[in-house]
């Protein structure tokens, strides 16, 4: 707990700044530029990982909602019995609680469904094609097992498909993608911390003489660390701001979501989700702060 307060207390001091402490570290160096570049690149990637994660989340919800409230009944029966079984199915559906409505798909609709596989001139009348009934459920839905048993009793050729076998893998896949997106964000944060740690260590090693002089004249470790931490945190913040801005611009320029485009065109942010990428720069700064501070105190502990 003490360390926790020390961490946030030093973050507050860092925000306040101390120009004189900053000046003791040489003003330029490739490590500082490397930090900006790393933070920028990582922020850019984080924007896309975040967009992917949010888009797959939306997709999983949409598929889940859309498929959860519909089911299909397929009736396969000899030609003479088809109409009787269709009537029996409609009758069962009309007398089952949890069914909002149902609709027999027209020949034209069935032809369109089969068109991708059999072409446009399918002679539907001469083929033993099953009839399809689209079922719309209420929010609570019917007792699927009870409905299945009634259908098999009154219309033996009817098979109820509640879309579970389609829905589950689709929703699972979307949820996995969302998880992978989040994992990617964590990995990016970890990589950023590792890169900034290496850059900070390099800067600390290059400034060994400065640090030993500061210790000699009575500087506390916190004073010395602050000069390095502030520089790297500010660099990371600026890099992440640029990277995030470019990432958001790239997302903005993606084609708009369209029905026919499905997943790929729905990759952007929607509504309040646009606020989330704006959190990336301060979080990158926090990661840089923690990484540089830890590296600085480790390095300082080796200097008398």
């Amino acid at each position: 707990m003490k360390q926790f307060f020390a961490f946030f207390s030093s973050f507050r001091v860092l925000l306040a700044g101390d120009a004189s402490a900053d000046s003791v570290v040489p003003p330029s160096g490739y490590t500082a530029r490397l930090t900006s570049f790393t933070a920028g690149a990582m922020a850019f990637l984080t924007v896309f990982a975040l967009a992917l994660s949010l888009a797959t989340g939306r997709l999983a919800d949409r598929w889940s909602d859309e498929l959860a409230r519909t089911s299909t009944i397929r009736i396969s029966a000899p030609e003479g019995q088809m109409q009787a079984q269709l009537d029996a199915v409609i009758n069962v559906l009309e007398t089952t609680t949890g069914i909002a409505s149902s609709r027999v798909m027209t020949d034209e609709e069935q032809r369109r469904l089969l068109e991708p596989w059999f072409g446009p001139d399918l002679p539907l009348e001469s083929l033993p094609i099953p009839r399809l009934v689209e079922v719309f459920e209420t929010d609570n839905g019917p007792d699927m097992e009870g409905l299945r048993q009634r259908l098999s009793a009154e219309a033996p050729g009817a098979v109820l498909d509640d879309h579970t076998r389609w829905r589950k893998p689709l929703v699972n896949a979307a949820n996995r993608l969302r998880l992978l997106g989040m994992l990617a964000i964590l990995l990016i944060a970890g990589s950023t911390a590792a890169m900034i740690t290496l850059a900070a260590q390099s800067a600390l090693a290059a400034n060994g003489q400065v640090i030993s002089v500061l210790r000699l004249v009575g500087a506390r470790d916190t004073y010395i660390a602050r000069a390095f931490v502030r520089r790297f945190t500010v660099r990371a913040l600026l890099g992440a701001l640029l990277g995030t801005a470019l990432g958001m611009l790239a997302i903005l320029l993606l084609p708009a979501a369209a029905e026919e485009g499905a997943f790929l065109t729905g990759l952007g942010f929607m509504g309040w989700h646009w606020i989330l990428p704006m959190l990336i720069p301060p979080l990158a700064a926090l990661v840089a702060f923690g990484a540089t501070r830890a590296a600085a105190f480790r390095a300082l502990s080796r200097i008398s």
């Binding site: 003791v24 003003p27 003489q209 400065v210 004249v217």
Partner: peptide, 15 residues
Amino acid sequence: KFVDHLSMYENIRMP
């Protein structure tokens, strides 16, 4: 043992 990028004024007042 000076900090070479700082002026003598800055070095002397460093403590």
